Amino acid sequence: MVGIVFASHGGLAEGVKDSVSMVFGDQPDVTAVSLLPSMAPENFRAALDSAVAGLSEPENVLVLIDLWGGTPFNQTSAALADHSGWALVTGLNLPMAIEACASRGAAKSARDLAGQLMVEGRRGVRVLPEDLAPQPKRVSAASTAAHAAPAPAGEGGLQIKWTRIDSRLLHGQVAMAWSKEIRPDRIIVVSDNVAHDELRKNLITQAAPPGIKANVCPVSKLIQIAHDSRFARTTALLLFETPQDVVRVIEGGVPLEHINVGSMAHSAGKIAINDTVSIDAQDAEAFKQLHDRGCRLGWQKVPADHEEPVWPLVEKSGLLS
């Protein structure tokens, strides 16, 4: 039988599992994995692996995930490379979950079941009064031609709307919250390491939110396109893993006046300066260079949060020589 894993940010996955139990009773080989605020991506992956290990057929597993591009999606998508019998579907809702449990007995495999759930999940989204549902728009030939015509390149270069340091790069907060707030044409991950890692590069490209393209480029390439007039009509949200790479981009002549700091993961040799940011001496020196160049450094996880200054936290860290 196909094993089912519900995966989400917060308690949604556990809630869906509980709701399915109300309809069908307790189900064998159904489990839930939640990404909690205190968890790093690798902690979620470990929880996912542990949950799947408890299923009777750990190589025949369907993972139903809340949203495309978040940490649960990214970590599960990476796991698919090592598990040819797994499949994942995003947009987790109760009709989808109920259909999965009702139909898995007849399904040959997790991959066969995944295709069925796309239809049922969409059917479960309804509105009352029914006339509130959007109607298909008629598109004239003239309008189609106008949209198909390429825009002429303008003066200047890439229009950078937002710059963020986040060691998780493209995850749920960026894909859903910041992209809706900033509304860029592209999300560009600027990292030499990721640009040379085909697996991470592909995962980031897949994680792009609807209507926005995601690209990965090394620092040198970003400096080039930032001054290329062919990109003058393109708006971008830049994502960096480290403040050191931001310094390199500014040294390359790209003006960045405001740096949003989201998350910098803790590792050996780093100290926490607040709930989500851990730095070492090299990070502190890079932040000093950014501060000395007049960059505003603000810590803000999501748009709804109040921005707090980062530089005073760096000064108090004791890491500056």
Rank of each mutant, 00 (worst) to 15 (best):
V2W: 04
G3D: 04
G3Y: 06
I4P: 07
I4H: 02
S8C: 04
G10T: 07
G11N: 13
G11I: 02
G11R: 13
E14S: 15
V16F: 05
V20K: 09
Q27G: 02
V30I: 14
T31M: 05
T31L: 06
T31F: 04
T31E: 10
A32I: 08
S34H: 00
S38H: 12
A40Q: 14
N43V: 04
F44M: 13
A46Y: 01
S50F: 07
V52G: 04
A53Y: 01
G54R: 13
E57D: 15
E57R: 14
V63I: 15
L64R: 03
I65Y: 09
I65M: 09
W68T: 11
G69Q: 09
P72V: 10
F73T: 07
S77L: 14
A79S: 14
L80A: 01
L80E: 11
A81Q: 12
H83C: 03
S84T: 12
W86Q: 04
T90V: 12
P95M: 09
M96C: 03
A97Y: 05
I98S: 05
A100I: 03
A102S: 14
S103P: 00
G105R: 09
K108W: 04
K108N: 12
A110I: 08
L113M: 10
L113A: 10
M118I: 15
E120R: 15
G121A: 05
L132P: 00
S140E: 11
S140L: 11
S140C: 05
T144W: 13
T144A: 15
A146N: 11
P150Y: 04
A151S: 13
P152R: 09
K161R: 15
W162M: 12
R164N: 08
I165K: 06
I165F: 02
G172C: 06
Q173I: 08
V174C: 11
A175Q: 08
A177G: 00
S179D: 02
I182S: 08
R186E: 13
S191H: 07
A195S: 15
D197K: 06
L199Q: 14
T205Q: 14
T205N: 10
Q206L: 15
P209Q: 10
P210N: 08
G211W: 07
G211R: 07
N215Q: 14
V216E: 06
C217R: 14
S220P: 00
S220V: 11
L222N: 02
I223E: 00
I225F: 09
I225D: 09
A226F: 05
S229A: 13
F231N: 13
A232M: 06
T235V: 10
L238W: 04
E241I: 04
T242F: 00
T242W: 00
P243K: 05
D245H: 00
G253F: 01
V254A: 03
P255K: 10
H258C: 09
G262V: 07
G262N: 07
S263C: 11
M264F: 06
I271M: 11
I271T: 13
A272L: 13
I273A: 03
N274R: 07
I279T: 09
D280K: 04
A286K: 01
K288F: 05
K288I: 00
H291C: 02
D292Y: 03
D292R: 08
G294D: 07
R296E: 14
R296Y: 01
W299V: 12
W299D: 05
Q300K: 15
K301V: 12
V302M: 11
P303A: 10
P303R: 10
D305T: 08
H306W: 00
E308N: 09
V310A: 01
L320E: 04
